[in-house]
Design a protein around this nucleic acid. Sequence first.
DNA 1: GGACGTCAAGTGGTTGGACCATTGTACAAC
DNA 2: GTTGTACAATGGTCCAACCACTTGACGTCC
Lengths: 231, 231
Amino acid sequence: MQTQIKPIKKTTVVEQAIESLYDLVRSQNLKPGDRLPTERDLSEALNISRSSLREAIRVMDMMGIVEVEHGHGIRLSGLNLSQSISKPLNFLIATDSNMLLELYEFRKLIEVESVKTAALKITDVEIKELKKLYSELKNYQHDRNLGIELEIKIHETIAKAGNKIMSEVIMAIHDVMKVSRESTVAAVGVSDHTIKMHGKIIEALENRDPDSAAKYMLSHVESVYSRITEE
Amino acid sequence: MQTQIKPIKKTTVVEQAIESLYDLVRSQNLKPGDRLPTERDLSEALNISRSSLREAIRVMDMMGIVEVEHGHGIRLSGLNLSQSISKPLNFLIATDSNMLLELYEFRKLIEVESVKTAALKITDVEIKELKKLYSELKNYQHDRNLGIELEIKIHETIAKAGNKIMSEVIMAIHDVMKVSRESTVAAVGVSDHTIKMHGKIIEALENRDPDSAAKYMLSHVESVYSRITEE
DNA sequence: GGACGTCAAGTGGTTGGACCATTGTACAAC
DNA sequence: GTTGTACAATGGTCCAACCACTTGACGTCC
């Protein structure tokens, strides 16, 4: 016979500190770039030790919520989700090999949506930036590192032209793929198919044609996906 | 004249500790649930103070990478991305009001993909679970809290049937929407349109029809989206 | 006046140690 | 067998000191 009874909720001072700091941000209407009080002041105000306060701040730092500068102070950061996603994602991949496939599938789905959204919102300036990156990509196609960097840069530029939060997620995925790629055999650069598809994607974006852009992005991401699953 | 010179990379012992723990997990091939050494042992092994090591562990705890139990020890956790995403996302929304709209747009895109993927993978057991939740939802439609909880539960069950990583992202979004909802005027429960759409979605899932499922999900999410943007 | 070095104050980074709170286990008491 | 007690192990919290970095003020040298 089990009665409906809730377990006692245990919270640490560090968790409470983070909550309090969240309330502080809300109540003071703080914006990205604004300074927070010093560690010593905050710990006194919250009536906890500096050690505990530091744990809270460190968490917020590593999550990209604040930016801590040695000798200078603590500032609120702006959009920076990817940082907080990529680290746990890396650990997840390391501890559960099934998750890598899930990640690639997720990437496929989200990159396609990303390019569709971008096609509806992209500006001429962003198109120009993409073309510049694309010409560089063609130049450095066979440079193992630079080629991949440029390809990633193109994807992220596209993503940013679409939805800001989705682009952060995509950046996190790229980061994880980069780490997982480093621990595998070296590729020889960027494939011809990849080059071609990126050209088509950018062309479709210029025409503000989401369906066409999606088609070529799908083709591109699926070719990567199949290259992984074959190994 | 600016030469190409890289700024010196400053790293803290805490960041290095996290890296070392990542390497430990990889090299020992640790799996979710496995115990890590005690704080005192780890700090000694890494040759840093217990305070610094605790900052590293705390970060990993709040990111959902490990689970720390007072008096017991530290274990490696499994899939738990949503925790690490929702907190920074909450701060982001608090500091940049534009981001709430971006979030709802993102949610629209990702929930639609989620249900499409689910339609291709969902099992009979999961269908059954969904039907159970749906009948409960109809019963508690006008219960402000329980109704919304049930609706969220349905979405998350669908998401989990699809892609595991995407479902974590969706759970994080739901968490943030819950927080932002708490600070707004109370709704009166779940709308009739929502009820109807969920019935259609589940029906489509049962028929393994991704396009139909996507259609109704889009209709549902857009009605929520438009309710927000009107306010 | 401008460039450079020196210094001091403020702030985060790190350490070591002490003590508290919780958990699990072993063992005695009943 | 159940209960209670004691103890060891482990994470939670605090404190005080000192190190490292940034900034700005000030003075010196040219």
